Simulated scan of single mutants.
Amino acid sequence: MTDLDLLAAAAGSTHLDPVKLFLDADIVVRVVMGGLLLASIWVWTILLSFGFRMASLRRQSEAYEGEFWKSRDIDAFQAERGGGRNADLPVAKVVSAALAEWRRSATGKIDRSGARQRLSSVMDSVVAAEAESLADRLNFLATVGSVAPFVGLFGTVWGIMNSFFQIGQQQNSSLSVVAPGISEALFATAIGLFAAIPAVIGYNRYSHIVNSFEARLQRFADRFHASLSRELDGL
């Protein structure tokens, strides 16, 4: 009988049963696998929700910007379109912050150079804050991607240690004795990779999307700043 045959006999089936591996594992290994499964579920929740959120933000931002540059009265446009469901739109927040600073700077004696600097600073601050807010949930993906494999490895090491302990207890080093414990232990590493791989891929992909969105928001702010600068020249 080959080693593979012995492994199949020890598992009680010709196929590995993940549920049986989990239930038969040592309590420490089960806790590790349970934690990794919960982390994996949360990772996929973030991946799906963040994907839908960014797609929605992109559509709303495109619609808002298209109408914004066509408008002749920015104050009226912002009063009409800057509230309601658009109130939390990053590009609308940039416009609101810039208009608020514009009103303060355009009263009394105008310092054109100082006003331009303040407008730039205000809009850059909003852009950075919005990008940071979007990227905040991605930190969990980075954490799972870097930690999950080591947590799974800890479960594997513990399971293998337990298997060697069983060898000493039973005075039997045959594969039929150690195979179940080793299978359960290796399953912990597999779950760790199952949680880490999509987390790493999702983090890299969504970080790129957030960076692209931030760059687009910054371009809008720069263009709006140029428009306001021309208005300042006319005052």
Rank of each mutant, 00 (worst) to 15 (best):
S174C: 08
E80C: 08
A100E: 14
G168A: 15
L119V: 04
V31A: 15
F187C: 00
P180H: 14
P90K: 06
Q170R: 08
V144S: 04
I191M: 07
S229C: 03
S13A: 14
L16C: 02
F165E: 14
R112Q: 14
L141F: 01
W42K: 05
M123N: 04
A87R: 08
M123I: 11
R53Y: 12
D124L: 13
D75W: 08
K93A: 11
V127T: 11
R81P: 04
I74C: 03
G34Y: 02
R112E: 12
A188K: 01
R230Y: 13
D222A: 14
E67R: 12
F140C: 06
Q78H: 13
Q78Y: 11
Y203T: 03
I110A: 02
D26W: 03
R219D: 14
I74R: 10
Y64K: 07
G34H: 06
G84L: 09
V210W: 02
E132K: 15
N172M: 08
Q218G: 05
D124F: 13
G155Y: 07
I46R: 00
S61W: 01
Q60R: 12
A100R: 15
K70H: 12
S125Y: 08
R103A: 09
M161P: 00
V28W: 04
V200K: 00
I46V: 12
V126S: 06
L4Y: 03
F220A: 03
L4G: 03
A142T: 03
A92S: 15
L21N: 03
L47R: 04
I182L: 12
E67T: 06
T189K: 00
W69Y: 08
L23M: 10
